[in-house]
């Protein structure tokens, strides 16, 4: 299996042809993804583009979105990498359950996630009522709540990516480092981390894109106030009623950013990793 996969890139490229029906269906799929984008571009107020984008409300939402999503990614790395390490390497009863639990928010409708966070960390929530009583910490309607909501939906993307990379890493290399006297932590930093770096970068990019686009959990758990909790997607949704032009421009910004992330992901990392052209 492995030899076949590795042998494939040696074959000359460009020979393969799709059967006509498959090609037609594939083109329909491409059109399906391209059309909504064209719709936005078609309606975009190009003459006022700069005014709409530099309006203080737009800039505030953009700034908040970037700050919060970077925080969410930082937290995802801090907690997600050890979690992936645990899930990939440690055998324990109920591991499948724990994994399902930690990845649940990936498939959950974000609004449901927001409601769940509400009952956990809200002012009357399971934990939130004690935070309020003992420390006067009230998460809802705060920027921290936005970061929490984004981390909740984004971290699983990093965890699955890193876990999969850790699982199929050749452990003999790590074992060799260990026999040479390296500590577990040292081995992880110097051997394991560099080896899974492409997966880690991919995971970070995916988690960041997801955090940036977070809507449902944010509006339910964190609320919506300019400068505090109104991120770009929330601003788009609300601007649609009052200022559709601005909504379109903000949407295009979100699309451009997400597109850039995915494109760089493919070329830099997937390309480098999957393309596997003999050097």
């Amino acid at each position: 299996m492995r030899t076949v996969l590795l042998g494939r890139p040696d074959r000359p490229r460009g020979r393969e042809r799709l059967p006509a029906p498959a090609l037609a269906l594939a083109l329909v799929a491409v059109a399906f993804f391209a059309l909504p984008l064209l719709g936005l571009l078609w309606r975009a107020p190009w003459s006022d583009a700069w005014t709409e984008l530099t309006a203080s409300s737009a800039l505030r939402a953009l700034k908040l979105s970037i700050t919060c999503s970077l925080w969410a990614v930082a937290l995802s790395i801090l907690f997600g990498v050890p979690l992936a390490w645990l899930l990939a390497r440690i055998e324990f009863r109920g591991r499948g359950l724990v994994r399902a639990l930690c990845l649940l928010s990936m498939v959950l409708p974000p609004v449901v996630g927001g409601v769940a966070l509400f009952f956990a960390l809200g002012r009357r929530g399971l934990v939130g009522q004690w935070l309020d009583r003992w420390f006067s910490i009230r998460l809802p309607f705060s920027t921290a709540a936005v970061v929490i909501a984004q981390t909740f939906v984004a971290m699983p993307f990093l965890v699955v990516t890193v876990e999969a990379a850790l699982r199929q890493l050749d452990r003999r290399v790590e074992d060799a480092a260990r026999t040479l006297g390296a500590s577990r932590w040292y081995t992880f930093r110097k051997v394991t981390l560099p080896a899974i770096q492409p997966a880690l970068v991919a995971g970070v990019a995916l988690a960041w894109a997801r955090a940036l686009g977070e809507f449902g959990a944010t509006i339910t758990f964190a609320g919506n106030f300019p400068g505090t909790t109104q991120t770009l997607p929330l601003a788009v949704y609300l601007a649609l009623e009052s200022n559709p032009q601005q909504a379109i421009m903000l949407s295009l910004v979100l699309i451009a950013v997400s597109f850039a992330v995915l494109a760089s992901l493919r070329d830099r990392w997937l390309g480098g990793v999957v393309g596997a052209r003999p050097r």
Binding site: R2, T161, A164, A165, Q168, I196, A199, A202, V273, V274
Partner: peptide, 10 residues
């Protein structure tokens, strides 16, 4: 060795 499965991982 990392490559093929990393594709699925991503």
């Amino acid at each position: 060795r990392l490559r093929p499965r990393l594709l699925t991982a991503v």
